[in-house]
């Protein structure tokens, strides 16, 4: 089987897992919750297998490079990191609501990868500048960070939903996890994401220095990753300032994810983008 076929199946499995999580949340269905976990885990395993196969295929084509070189490949890896972090968090916190928000993101990433006309799934040879192990480390760590921020975004959204629905203590509103747990979760995943984004920026800088002789050039992609980093640094310190708690921090976590998404996609639409624009 080819990697692209496996990944189509994985898209479907992720969709199913997402539907089951939503079902489990809405109807408080314990069985659906367990099945959702199983499907998400199976999807993640297939996703990893698909990436591995694609790696092998690129060798068969004679290019031989890690599958982290274009938009398609980065979306596929993003889907894997989101589902992996979602699995860990759901396993620890037992929050169907979180699965219901986070697993669709993995599904969407794969849908976008395979359906968007702007994203090609062809395996292409690498540009010389991209032939570097730093690139592999850079992409992996950045996307782990992004995925953690995605889950932080979901936890932040849940927190805000909970605030909004304080009077309505029925139906699914009653099944949003409590504020303390969400606040705690947001902080933990953001801390994880911050560490990995930091390592991602650093490996990117080291790579740039080995390829172009400077570790920082203020190009839009770099600058946006710094903006995102500063934003989450602000987030970490905001809790230390009196009065910055609860919903404000949840807002920050959601807005931070908007910066992540802009760093990832939006930068390609800015004037004067850089040569490996769609790289991630």
């Amino acid at each position: 089987m080819e990697s692209s076929q496996i990944l189509s199946v994985v898209t479907f499995v992720y969709g199913l897992a997402a539907a089951l999580y939503i079902f489990a949340w809405v109807f408080r269905a314990e069985t659906a919750f367990r099945f959702a976990f199983g499907f998400l885990a199976a999807g993640a395993a297939g996703n990893a297998l698909g990436i591995g196969l694609r790696w092998v295929e690129s060798y068969r084509l004679g290019y031989g490079h890690a599958p982290f070189s274009n938009m398609y490949e980065s979306l596929v890896f993003f889907a894997l990191t989101i589902s992996a972090i979602c699995l860990v968090v759901v396993r620890r916190t037992k929050m169907p609501a979180l699965g219901a928000l986070a697993s669709p993101l993995a599904f969407l990433a794969l849908c976008y990868a395979s359906l968007s006309p702007h994203v090609s799934d062809r395996i292409e040879p690498l540009l010389p500048a991209l032939k570097s192990n730093w690139l592999i480390a850079h992409v992996m760590t950045c996307f782990l960070g992004y995925a953690a921020f995605a889950v932080g975004f979901c936890a932040g959204i849940l927190y805000l939903l909970r605030e909004r629905s304080r009077e309505r203590r029925d139906g699914i509103w009653a099944r949003i996890p409590d504020a303390g747990a969400l606040d705690n979760l947001t902080h933990r995943v953001v801390v994880f994401g911050f560490l990995f984004l930091t390592i991602g920026i650093i490996t990117g800088a080291v790579w740039a220095n080995s390829a172009w002789g400077r570790y920082w050039g203020w190009d839009p992609k770099e600058t946006w990753s710094l903006i995102t980093w500063l934003f989450y640094a602000t987030f970490l310190h905001a809790r230390l300032v009196r009065g910055w708690k609860g919903s404000r921090v949840a807002w920050l976590s959601s807005a931070g994810f908007a910066a992540v998404i802009f760093t990832y996609f939006g930068v390609n639409y800015l004037p004067g983008l850089h040569s490996y624009g769609a790289m991630g």
């Binding site: 839009p220 903006i227 500063l230 934003f231 602000t234």
Partner: peptide
């Protein structure tokens, strides 16, 4: 906090003006 948020905010300008 103000400085970090402020730096993030002004840094955006230079990504829209080449």
């Amino acid at each position: 906090v103000v400085l970090m948020a402020g730096l993030a905010a002004v840094s955006i300008i230079g990504t829209f003006i080449p």
